[in-house]
Amino acid sequence: MREDLLDPRAVLLHESAASREEAVRRCGRVLVDVGAVAEPYVEAMLERERTISTYVGEGVAIPHGTAASKQDVARDAICVVRFPGGIDWDGERVTLCVGIAAAGDGHVPLLAALAEILLDPDRARTLREATEPGQVLKELT
């Protein structure tokens, strides 16, 4: 995965959220804070989540906006937000959210790269259990 996609400020490993919506909102806020997306993108992420769950297995969800929200993306980026206490995600337990912002079709290679990492149980566990941003950056770039 390209190094410029993951700003070290977009790696938060000790977060908590009371709900799936709150977790998605937190991911969106991180993407806004690093200048990757405009504010409306956060609502688009919630809209996507209401349409189809972004849970992908192994305790991981990949929240992202709708096709219509691409105009709110300033640059392709990801964020990694860990919720050590876990969140109920439609009956699944999520501890790691990888938020995606992509203009155009930038999300396709991003999702493919993430899937490759997450399909490797050891790498997925490393991400889920990371306590230092450096561990996440090393695993993803």
Score class of each variant (00 low, 15 high):
66 T>W: 06
65 G>N: 10
76 D>P: 04
81 V>T: 11
68 A>Y: 07
89 W>Q: 00
78 I>P: 03
73 V>P: 02
81 V>R: 04
64 H>R: 14
85 G>W: 09
83 F>N: 04
79 C>V: 13
61 A>P: 05
90 D>W: 03
87 I>C: 07
75 R>S: 09
78 I>Y: 03
88 D>L: 11
88 D>G: 10
85 G>Q: 15
71 Q>P: 00
87 I>M: 06
70 K>F: 05
84 P>E: 11
65 G>K: 08
91 G>C: 07
69 S>N: 07
72 D>E: 12
61 A>W: 02
79 C>T: 15
90 D>G: 15
74 A>P: 00
72 D>I: 00
87 I>H: 02
91 G>S: 09
72 D>F: 13
81 V>L: 07
74 A>Y: 06
63 P>F: 07
62 I>P: 00
88 D>P: 08
78 I>R: 02
82 R>I: 12
76 D>N: 14
74 A>L: 09
64 H>D: 13
83 F>W: 10
83 F>I: 11
84 P>Y: 08
91 G>T: 07
85 G>N: 14
85 G>Y: 10
66 T>S: 11
77 A>G: 05
65 G>D: 13
75 R>H: 13
73 V>T: 05
66 T>L: 14
63 P>D: 09
75 R>K: 14
81 V>P: 05
92 E>P: 03
89 W>K: 01
65 G>A: 13
82 R>L: 13
83 F>C: 10
61 A>E: 07
91 G>K: 05
